[in-house]
């Protein structure tokens, strides 16, 4: 399609407004910078880490020293190196499982809200059912059945986290469907796929994005919990959760804080910063704000 240059420049008006509102949130901006740095470190883990994460390179549970900045774990592996790789895994699980659950949730929500009737009822009752399961138990049992491992963890978390998004999308579709521009499309005989994907979906992207951000944080927490309980990422592969595993013992918890404080702190910081970003996004997209 051919458009003049003037059109392209005006295209950015909305984006600029959102950007301006987002930048007002100092915490969110700081979180974004923090997350960007961590992301970069995670991506560059093979370059940055001083030692191989799986190799025994020091004594058992050595405290932090110049040689090992964050000490070594119970089998003598470098904690800093392991953590760099662990952040990689945690972020991967967070983003990938959120991608899975967003796709599932958006598809089910769109279908449910747009077509309504029996289909809507079946999908929504199924959603309620998934939601009413004790969450951690469901994840644990599935992990036990499908064997713990990176891909399985991503899929399990992805297929458990979608009900919130499905409900959100359905609600949005229900309200947008009744707006007059959709009726205009129907008067003009536009096909359903056009109404659904070209008219309704773009109007639900903002709330989906906001919600997905919080799902990323939740997925990372779930992965950590699962790995902590030994049903998540399996050693020797490291994840923030299974690095905390050692903290199950009282002696480590009380006398060897370098084994659990860094990964624990990292989880907290990641989750908190993602949530700040989510909050700022919500405010930035809110049309009633200024």
């Amino acid at each position: 399609m051919n458009r003049d240059k003037t059109i392209i420049s005006e295209d950015n008006v909305y984006r600029n407004t959102v950007m301006r509102r987002f930048l007002k949130h100092k915490l969110a901006v700081a979180s974004t910078i923090f997350l960007a740095i961590i992301l970069l470190c995670a991506l560059l883990a093979p370059v940055l880490s001083p030692y191989s994460p799986d190799k025994v390179v020091g004594g058992f549970s050595d405290p932090p020293s110049v040689k090992h900045l964050l000490g070594t774990d119970q089998v003598g592996r470098d904690v800093l190196s392991r953590m760099l790789y662990a952040v990689r895994i945690s972020l991967l699980v967070g983003f990938a499982s959120t991608a899975v659950s967003t796709v599932v949730g958006v598809v089910l929500g769109l279908v449910s809200g747009f077509f309504g009737g029996i289909l809507d009822m079946v999908i929504m009752r199924f959603t309620d059912m998934v939601m009413s399961f004790p969450y951690i138990l469901l994840v644990l049992v599935s992990a036990a059945i499908f064997r713990p491992g990176l891909l399985n963890i991503i899929l399990i978390l992805g297929f458990v986290d979608w009900p919130g998004i499905a409900r959100l999308v359905r609600g949005n579709v229900l309200s947008i469907r009744e707006m007059t521009f959709i009726q205009g499309d129907r008067v003009a005989g536009m096909p359903k796929r056009y109404i659904l994907f070209s008219e309704i979906l773009p109007n639900t992207v903002a709330p989906i994005l906001v919600y997905a951000t919080s799902v990323i944080a939740i997925s990372m927490l779930d992965e950590a919990a699962l790995s902590f309980l030994g049903m998540g990422i399996q050693p020797p592969q490291s994840s923030l959760g299974n690095m905390l595993n050692g903290a199950q013992s009282i002696s480590i918890l009380t006398s060897k804080p370098w084994l659990w404080v860094p990964p624990g702190l990292m989880i907290i910081l990641l989750v908190v910063s993602i949530n700040f970003i989510g909050d700022a996004l919500r405010d930035a997209f809110d049309p009633s704000g200024n």
């Binding site: 707006m179 007059t180 521009f181 009726q183 205009g184 008067v187 003009a188 008219e199 773009p202 109007n203």
Partner: peptide
């Protein structure tokens, strides 16, 4: 064709 009442919701 139809022209609607509310000009604020009649355009995407």
């Amino acid at each position: 064709q139809m022209v609607f009442q509310d000009p604020y919701t009649s355009l995407n």
